[in-house]
Design a protein around this nucleic acid. Structure first.
Lengths: 142, 142
DNA sequence: AAAATATACTTTGATAATCAAACATTATCA
DNA sequence: TGATAATGTTTGATTATCAAAGTATATTTT
């Protein structure tokens, strides 16, 4: 993989993969009654569990100000709730309500289906290798 | 890869990968004088060459209305231009100006660096396998 | 302990991003 | 020719976002 053309090619395929994934996700979300940012927040909370505003903002890759707005809407729609802690009263812990958990499960089902589709066009070995590779990249690069 | 837990795990890693990639890209873009949608449009035009509005909208995964706005801004900032064709006078071909090509090259450099970083933590075989796998998924799923 | 500094979050004000639906223009089909 | 389809723009509304300023609480320094 030292060859420059392979780097070029992999780059182009990664960008294409990213854009396709993004389009796919947006169209899945638009078929629900959630906005894109709301859905992403629910996804993060469902996957990683209750967390404070700062961590949630970090997971979503946006500022805490943006996250405040998103969580406000999730709260008013009853998908999530804020809980303050005794230990540090500045902190708000954000957790999913039952409705939020349900929405997460539903959305996650789409992701699982997509992953299954992907694996269906790969051999068992390729799929296992993909998992290992993505894990490595997630741990070591991002 | 038939095991349900592996599907779960791969799904979670893919989502993490996607979110990390997204955050990375956003922070790269914010260090330039382009907005996120402008940068994405330049990226698509640079990678695939001149195309009409509909194709560009398709590549970006947004409506043509949204694309009109984006291209308006790119044009007013001199990164891209519209050219009408004789063959079909409804069509606008969008192409990068010299300034646009330069911005693309610069942005693409960041992507190439990221890919190199990724490959640096993989063996040659793993990297080649990743390329093949992503290609397959891009062709067959998206 | 008081003052200074840092942290977690919200608010504000502005701009960017987006969609759906209506519209204008040009092509194609019957 | 007239009807239908396709390409792109405009409109009106909503969502998404940031940076910077503000609020409240914790921590550190003197």
């Amino acid at each position: 993989m030292n060859h420059i053309n392979h780097i070029e090619e992999l780059t182009d395929e990664l960008i294409l993969f990213f854009n396709s994934f993004s389009s796919w996700e947006n169209s899945v979300i638009r078929s629900s009654d959630l906005s894109v940012s709301e859905a992403h927040a629910i996804e993060a909370l469902g996957q990683h569990g209750t967390m404070n505003m700062k961590s949630l903002a970090g997971k979503l890759g946006v500022t805490t100000g943006t996250t405040t707005v998103t969580v406000d809407r999730l709260e008013s729609k009853k998908y999530a709730r804020r809980t303050s802690t005794k230990k540090d009263r500045r902190v708000n812990l954000i957790s999913l309500t039952e409705k939020g958990e349900k929405a997460f499960a539903e959305h996650h089902r789409f992701h699982l289906d997509l992953t299954e589709q992907m694996c269906a066009c790969l051999s068992k070995e390729e799929a296992m290798q993909l998992l290992e590779t993505i894990k490595k990249i997630n741990r070591e690069i991002f």
